[in-house]
Nucleic acid binder design. Structure first.
Lengths: 350, 350
DNA sequence: TTTAAAAAATGAACCGGTTCAAAATTCTCG
DNA sequence: CGAGAATTTTGAACCGGTTCATTTTTTAAA
């Protein structure tokens, strides 16, 4: 009943089927779809009727093959599990959708081999371009020098130098912001829970922390306790807290990301300390949970929204005009969000 | 230096370019790529050399056009922000990647209009199939009756009846599990924070709660306090807690998801109550955070991994053999994970 | 050395759209 | 009514691969 038995073709209807049914040429069908104003209203009606009758859906692949630019954008992140990249994926999906594109989501899991495999497959798909949160962190040799089929790429959360477009956040400045805030509150023994050595973002944040200490005329050797962790999850933070409490307890802790901070929080609570009375706590990223944590967490906010939006826009622009494109590196400033984990006077909401 | 100036063609090299350079026919190039054993080693070497020289990457779109099945799978979720769907997206991405496919990630934002737009665009992309967490919750009329171009679809987290493939979790059983646990611990005034009325999953969980109360020979009117919220976020849970504390305080709270539970936790703490001593707390979903919450949260675990894995496999299977496919509905059992928010004797880790 | 069989290579046609020069139709106006 | 202009419609060629019946080359057997 729902499907008229005239539709016996197994493969979905093509433009030629429509043309035959509407008794016009394929060119006219194409025009009806793409330039409706150039076809006579009577003809147009007939074609539209045929399209509806056959349930015809134009094949986007064939379209791209004839020169139309693809509306697919690849997104390769190095860790989907991390709330930061999840939130980034979210805003990117939205921006991209609003400009009429779709996202192909890929997870490199921090593995450079997998990453290049994904880039090859995206090139084969002839996507319009790729947003890449790089797994490779080698600063010296440029690992993205020759991409398969000169795929337009915008690096996110990583500045890959003048050879690439990129949008990143100034991590050194972020580390500085956090420590300046703690110093201003009068803390003098500050721990930095820095994440795994080797992750550039985290190293930069720790670097900013040292700079702030020095700028305040203090000695990092004395006032700064640096701890590195093997991972960047809650459990890693908890272990770091236990480690810290073995020695002289710090009066403030700055963590390389919010998950670590949540773990540190638990470690402190379990040891009978309270936040912020005994120890002040600062995180990084300002993920959604930070605001709603039991003690709302002071955190260095990365402008994820802007990062995602700008990255998507830059990529679309970059992939639009093939020639005369000069690579652009945008660096966004981080922002400190003060909450009760450092300052009890902070408003309950924000 | 890196690019020989012989490569002056602007558009990426095609198979005919390779054929010309290697002095063979296009058919031979195609064979070298797809059936290397049918071409003479000497010829193969020449072709491979040409491919490398030109940086040739076969166009997947053209391949699909000639009949190869697409390796792209659409994933439409109704709320990327929710940790539950994020985790689902994560495991789906992995499963799909391991079977040689890619995910196109789309967010319907719970909007049925947007959802059908996305389905149309995925149909136009000629994706292999779609995993759909439906925005439409109308049980009576089947909103996915006629999909554009008979796209293979597997519904996730929603049983759409015999007309569709689906993988879902038994939410009624989940609600029962939670309440049975609380009853066993001796609680007699149990609140249910049920999320927005109208979300099927949440309604089912509340239904299960009632069933458990009745099965225990108690009166839902007396022992069950049902509260609905406008959203399903932390803030909504907090407001619900405030509401609950206005009347006779319950001695246990069961929440429709973990985020609500986190909010309720904060509301209770802010009111000077402690968990689980004063009030026991049970969440739903068992997202990653539940285990690591300040007081680890007892939660009804949805087997997200299995949900995602099975859904992906079912879809690939479904989209493989066009004919003789009978729709299958799989319903997975939820599982109660007991932690300290209801039982202090629970192990610290799990 | 011939010949038959096996292996390798060929290239035109096709997938499903778009394009555009050329042909057909309709409209305008003297 | 007819010429010229404007509007519509046409359909073959093309995008970049794959396919497969056919031709060419190589190998094995007689």
């Amino acid at each position: 009943m729902s499907t008229p038995d005239t539709a016996t073709s197994k493969s979905p209807a093509g433009i030629r089927d429509v043309a035959a049914l509407a008794q016009v040429s394929t060119g006219t069908v194409s025009n009806t779809i793409n330039r409706p104003d150039t076809v006579h209203p009577r003809t147009r009606a007939a074609v539209e009727k045929a399209i509806a009758e056959l349930g015809f859906v134009p094949n986007q692949q064939a379209r791209v093959l004839t020169g139309a630019s693809s509306n697919v954008i690849g997104l390769v992140v190095l860790d989907i599990e991390s709330p930061f990249y999840m939130e980034a994926a979210h805003v990117i999906e939205r921006t991209v959708r609003e400009s009429g594109h779709v996202v192909m989501l890929c997870n490199s899991e921090g593995d450079t081999t997998r990453e290049s495999g994904l880039l090859a497959m995206l090139a084969a798909q002839r996507v319009r371009g790729v947003l890449l949160a790089p797994a490779s962190l080698d600063e010296d040799s440029d690992p993205y020098k020759d991409l398969p089929g000169d795929l337009p790429v915008v690096l996110i959360d990583y500045n890959g130098g003048p050879e690439h477009c990129s949008i990143s956040v100034d991590n050194v400045a972020g580390g500085r912001l956090a420590i300046e805030h703690l110093l201003q509150l009068g803390h003098t023994r500050i721990a930095v829970v820095g994440g795994p050595t080797g992750l550039r973002q985290f190293a930069d944040r720790a670097q900013g922390a040292r700079e702030a200490i020095i700028a305040a005329g203090m000695d990092p050797e004395v006032s700064l306790i640096e701890v590195s962790t093997s991972g960047i999850g809650i459990q890693d933070g908890r272990r770091a807290a236990e480690l810290l409490l073995e020695g002289d307890s710090p009066d403030a802790v700055f963590c390389g990301n919010d998950m670590l901070a949540f773990g540190v929080y638990r470690g402190l609570i379990d040891a009978g300390l309270s936040v912020p009375e005994d120890v002040a706590l600062v995180g990084y990223d300002d993920i959604d949970f930070a605001r709603d944590w039991v003690v709302p967490l002071t955190s260095v906010r990365q402008p994820i929204d802007e990062l995602g939006t700008r990255a998507a826009r830059l990529l679309i622009e970059h992939s639009a005009r093939e020639d005369s494109h000069t690579h652009r590196q945008e660096v966004l400033p981080p922002e400190l969000v003060v909450r009760r984990s450092t300052d009890l006077r902070a408003p309950a909401q924000h």
